[in-house]
Design a protein around this nucleic acid. Structure first.
Lengths: 217, 217
DNA sequence: CCATCACTATATCGCTTCGATACTGCGGTG
DNA sequence: CACCGCAGTATCGAAGCGATATAGTGATGG
């Protein structure tokens, strides 16, 4: 799961660990603070597989891509005024390999490679890399899962041995799942409608929001 | 986290592993299928701590509590017609100890013992065991967390480098968090209103539902 | 009549993830 | 210049997960 996230980010630019974490937090906006205890082992794993390769520190061109927006820009500013060349510390910058790109595609498309909510959210975030039919299949699959889950939760709602609080929880859960389904329906409708290449189709634009798919609370 | 769930269920009746799992699934309605790879180690852990004790198979009175609603009732039926005494197999029935009750209270009340969404959901499900002020504190604490999270996600929404899909995800996430907050507000209001012992206060009843706190999708 | 299926039930293995913690290098501030 | 705090990498132990093994039992059906 982390592998998918990492490869997806590296797809766009070379990054070092810390920055990957930051982007996971606020570019993807989801995936509440992945811990380093997960991140670094994941990077090591991917490197061992040959899916990413580490650009040795010092070799990395200091200009641009590799640095975090915040730290990078500040460092650049400082460099300009204090005329000290910002010799980057022990940063290990990672770059995706062709093999990594293959792996990314596989993780993104193969349903058997994880089907939990987190993975779905991640896949959807990267859905621009998917062919329209695969994308649609992804949405439909998820929808089916949610429909099943909804009926389970609804049956729990029907129980009469629940006190106020337990009941509040299950009802809230059910409502959440229902809204997720509605949201997916919106997305599916968008997929189905003939795709204009023009950025904004007239009816599009506000069907794209609703409730929580559950990428963390 | 599992510990809290297990102790909470054992609070009401003695149970064996399989049945704990079932109740987690459909009594609590949440906590999508806890795997046995988590459950049995957790039970072993609790037993080692002296928080639960295993009633040896055969010693357990076959009448009632220990069996699952389904299997139990069916087994009873069958026993009646086939007059074979259903000598229960290798079932290990667990019972909570006084020390376990202490641990339960601690896990339920101490915020430092886990503050992830799953744990919150669990705590709320067991909120009838909490004193009103502690209960309220629990809700307020969670609300504060969600408010912070919302502002984070909203700032992600403001980014302009997101494609349609990534944007859809973050917006959906934001909407979900907002609804969670609204739901909590409802619950808090209920807590605040002078508590009648009578089951239904006039204005109560439909404020208790909204969106997903995120006990799984 | 027995094979097979589906379900209850316990248990373990290897892997991923998490939370805590430790360490270093550097720039800014008192 | 001493110290604080942040950027950054790294590791450890515990917790949870998914797959898998094992075994007893009632029901289904050729």
């Amino acid at each position: 799961m982390l592998d998918l996230a990492i490869l997806g980010l590296l797809q766009e630019s070379d990054l070092h660990g810390y920055e990957i974490r930051r982007r996971l937090r606020d570019s993807l906006g989801l995936m509440a603070n992945i811990s380093f205890g997960s991140l670094y082992p994941a990077l090591a794993r991917l490197e061992a597989q040959g899916a990413v390769s580490a650009i040795e520190p010092g070799m990395a061109p200091v200009t641009g891509v590799a640095m975090g927006s915040l730290s990078g820009e500040l460092a650049a500013l400082r460099a300009r005024r204090s005329k000290v060349v910002v010799a980057k510390k022990a940063r290990k910058v990672y770059r995706i390999t062709p093999l990594g790109r293959e792996l990314f595609t596989r993780l993104l498309e193969d349903p058997s490679a994880g089907d939990d909510p987190r993975t779905f959210t991640l896949r959807l975030s990267f859905a621009r890399h998917l062919a329209p039919d695969v994308r649609r299949a992804l949405l439909e699959r998820r929808r089916a899962q949610l429909v099943e889950r909804l009926s389970e939760v609804r049956s729990a709602t029907a129980r009469n041995d629940l006190d106020v609080y337990a009941r509040a929880v299950v009802e809230h859960t059910a409502a959440g799942v229902a809204l997720d389904i509605a949201w997916l329906d919106g997305l599916i409708a968008h997929e189905g409608a003939p795709q204009h290449t023009s950025p904004q189709s007239p009816t599009a634009g506000d069907t794209m929001s609703s409730a929580s798919t559950s990428p963390q609370g």
